[in-house]
Design a binder for these strands. Structure first.
Lengths: 257, 257
DNA sequence: ACAGTTTTGTGAGCCGGCTTACAAAACGAG
DNA sequence: CTCGTTTTGTAAGCCGGCTCACAAAACTGT
């Protein structure tokens, strides 16, 4: 369990060239920085000139499944874009349980609090599958913010939206039973899911019961139990790392007990 | 308990003139909009021209102790500055318990997620003492953001810092015992406190045990109990609505059990 | 197909914290 | 000073959820 690999691999922008960890496998061969930037909606509206400047100060790295991209107390002078894979932002409690803050999907930004100040990171970023990450130096972003007000606003918006989400999550956890928490997190995850099968919709970041427990501050066993109940009640369908919401409205009734 | 007054009083900017709720009592007599803006560090660097434009599109209102400034599902087209008093941002669980998101002190901004999009509010803002609030229309802020990049960055920074704080709070609640939560929230509140008595420091927003419970998702009785224990152990001193941290380091040991 | 790993299922037992129920302080207003 | 309100203190009893302990699937790589 929890093979906690040492935090020897802090990701920070150095120069463009000496990217020793660049491994030209099937995916990164095809992928270039420009293509990655265009795929991230924060950067899609940039001019070619601006994009190019960004690329010059960005470095691409590969992270095998389960490796730590950054850890608490790491400097945090770059903002990261997930080019491929999936990343888990988490904390570790003193007794070793992992509290999951968020999942990052392809094309999404993370570690963006580095923009705010130069405080160290206060969470782990771990690749849950083989991932490739683009690191952009904060200074480069500052230049962009200065000359492009629209871009600045997009950043503000991103921070704001994520804050709203996490505040909702906090309210959905305080004072609520485990049953309510599970129903709540399922609905929350459903928002971010696009996959649909007819009327029913499946939670797209395929999660284990252990991970769900990490999201709501519960245990694996209890989550298994609650999911079982919800299935019996015909609200959801569960499979291995797969949850399909059958009765969305019924679930929202459960959250609000 | 919880006298839930109806949400008849949504605060939104109308015009400057017809401010029917303007009551020129001892405090608002002295206070003018300009003075209020200058006191909020977000606006302190504005030119006189900009400040004046802001004032024209801002409206001042008084809220007696315990009134609702805005409620969930309210439009949310303004950003608010607390000129005087204290405001509590909270949610209400289905069974009537209040989950406190944050306290707002004089000179601080709140309801600022209106900048991000025009989604309705998703929390209550309640004045815990008689308060006067300045409402600024979002459109006015947008103009400012466009022409003043530095201002834009300040907003981003504000959102980012608050997000970091709330993420920390989430991690400090998940998987943690009530004892750990109390110790954690005390340290968190201490950060925002300036009041000091020699070596010891007092939590400045004077909180009741009930409110502390609302912050960490616990009950009043349990909080009373835990605070009693912590006092016995010589880590803190408790009085009526008053908590003084004696052994800060000892407390941080408690949080990380 | 086989061995090892990951994920899920299930149950007994225990405990922290919630509930309920009072009561004593401490405070504020008149 | 007195009455009403707010805040805090305390304790018995109960229960949701955690712990611990296995075991059966389901998936992975070889």
């Amino acid at each position: 369990m929890l093979e906690q690999c040492g935090s020897e691999s802090s990701i920070e922008v150095t120069t463009d060239e000496d990217d020793e960890s660049y491994v030209p496998d099937r995916s990164t061969m095809i992928m270039n920085k420009h293509w990655i930037l265009k795929r991230c909606d924060l950067f899609e509206k940039l001019t070619d000139d601006q994009a190019e400047r960004l690329e010059r100060n960005a470095s691409l790295r590969n992270f095998p499944k389960g490796s730590i991209i950054y850890a608490p107390h790491d400097p945090g002078r770059s903002v990261l874009v997930l080019a491929e894979g999936r990343v888990k932002l988490k904390g570790i409690t003193p007794d070793g349980k992992e509290t999951i803050v968020a999942f990052i999907e392809e094309g999404e930004l993370f570690g963006e609090l580095a923009i705010v100040d130069d405080a160290p990171r206060d969470e782990f970023a771990e690749s849950v599958v083989d991932s490739t990450v683009l690191a952009i130096a904060c200074e480069t972003l500052f230049e962009l913010v200065d000359e492009l007000p629209a871009f600045s606003f997009k950043v503000t918006r991103l921070l704001g939206l994520r804050r709203r989400r996490i505040e909702t999550r906090l309210r959905n956890i305080l004072f609520r039973s485990n049953r309510q928490r599970v129903a709540g997190i399922l609905l929350e995850l459903l928002e971010a899911s696009r996959e649909r099968t007819g009327e029913e919709r499946r939670i797209t970041p395929r999660l284990s019961h252990q991970e769900i427990a990490g999201l709501i501050g519960s245990t694996r066993e209890t989550v298994t139990l609650v999911l079982g109940q919800l299935q019996l009640e015909g609200l959801i369908k569960v499979g291995r790392r797969s949850i399909t919401i059958v009765d969305r409205h019924g679930l929202s009734l459960v959250t609000n007990s």
